[in-house]
Design a protein around this nucleic acid. Sequence first.
DNA 1: TCCGGCCTTTCATTCAGTGAAAGCTCCGGT
DNA 2: ACCGGAGCTTTCACTGAATGAAAGGCCGGA
Lengths: 251, 251
Amino acid sequence: MRAEPGRSVTSKVLALLDAFSPATPALTLSELARRTGMPLPTVYRRAAELVAWGALERGDDGRYWIGLRLWEVGSLAPRGLGLRELALPVMEDLYEVTHENVQLAVRQDLELVFIERIAGRHAVPVLTRVGGRFALHATGVGLVLLAHAPAEVQEQVLAAPLERYTELTITDPRRLRRCLAEVRRVGYAVSDRQVTMDALSVAAPIRVPEGVVAAISLVVAHDRADPVALAPLVQAAGRVVSRALNSSHQG
Amino acid sequence: MRAEPGRSVTSKVLALLDAFSPATPALTLSELARRTGMPLPTVYRRAAELVAWGALERGDDGRYWIGLRLWEVGSLAPRGLGLRELALPVMEDLYEVTHENVQLAVRQDLELVFIERIAGRHAVPVLTRVGGRFALHATGVGLVLLAHAPAEVQEQVLAAPLERYTELTITDPRRLRRCLAEVRRVGYAVSDRQVTMDALSVAAPIRVPEGVVAAISLVVAHDRADPVALAPLVQAAGRVVSRALNSSHQG
DNA sequence: TCCGGCCTTTCATTCAGTGAAAGCTCCGGT
DNA sequence: ACCGGAGCTTTCACTGAATGAAAGGCCGGA
């Protein structure tokens, strides 16, 4: 064959899945080929197998999208739906008490992924999406996850340029380092208008014996907020989820 | 090679994902090999690639589980999270009004898959799990989905033995056929103690121009229920979601 | 009618994948 | 300490699953 060497079949299959994103949830065959840089017949054959299994689905117009079978399998991820199931009752309690946005996130590599979100209709709008990613250095949940991440992860984040979202976003590595130390010391994180100028978030860690695996937060309008008053509430929620998580591990 | 012919690499990768289930969300290498019937070195190599990409994760004890990256990609499924996002506000309204269980499901092959569930703490317990499957012939959502499924799907379900869950489960194909006709006629389905002897569900279709793509239901204690009174509520909810779905399709 | 995307199939070629076997590591029993 | 066993990882010679150029459909617009 004229196959360009050095590429496994598995990596090609995974590259096909990688081509889909929140911005482009449906793609034609040609678009898939262009995005993955793979020859069209190759994409055609791999995609056909994925459709047969249900990892992709194909519309009458020929476009591919992520299939329900993949969603089903993905829902088995302990750090995804598993964590959500444990945390949801607590998140609902937080929502009942405050009627503000409640968020749950975990770290994946150098970013965070939102696992669940309860968005109050009358609460301040947030731009997060379940399954979506965000930088670690700006949000409340991000600061908690970063503060308790392995040193190597922290160094990588601190070494890269820190994207600025508002004039209050911390973009100085030295300041961020001090901020993370403070997060560890007090046991919660406050992000005051560091993502948008109208919102403030307070976040607390969710722990297993090995360390922090997730973070839970409240996002409120910055002018309606008293972080110090909210912190115990969020911390308590984090502890309840932690306990549920630890007791579910050792069944 | 001594490779047993007739098996694509892609199918092996997908078989690995298939090995995981709600009952067995974490597996050792040997377990994976046994479950898939594949030689251990083959499993080892494919699994290593899946771990590198994030489709699987591996614990310190060597066990594999579904990775967060796969959950992320799965969350792009239009029939999964996409549908959920549209339906959730309506489901919450239904919950606020009734404080009963609210369920959202789609059909996948000859079964249904639960996409979302709001379980009232004080409502009758339901045994469904988000991401879980169930037979089409017993639940309210199942009857709606089956009633509006392609004729070929209906025939397959009617031809197979219909599992009995309670003494009221419809297991006679002729009776089920009449029941489905009634569901189509009145525009909603009632499942009275057909899954458990304490619960009754009322379900309505969610439609796109091409047909019914999902169903929404209320599950209530059977002795507290008046199906005829609940039906308009659930039907209205179905219509609201349908409208949201149709307007999101055409941008 | 012809042209230009886009999708699908064919076919000769070959490298990624293979599995037996051997080596490794850890653990529990003696 | 030594042994046996179970589970994991690596090696190696071999080959069939995967490949991509090319050609053959199939629209829909000019």
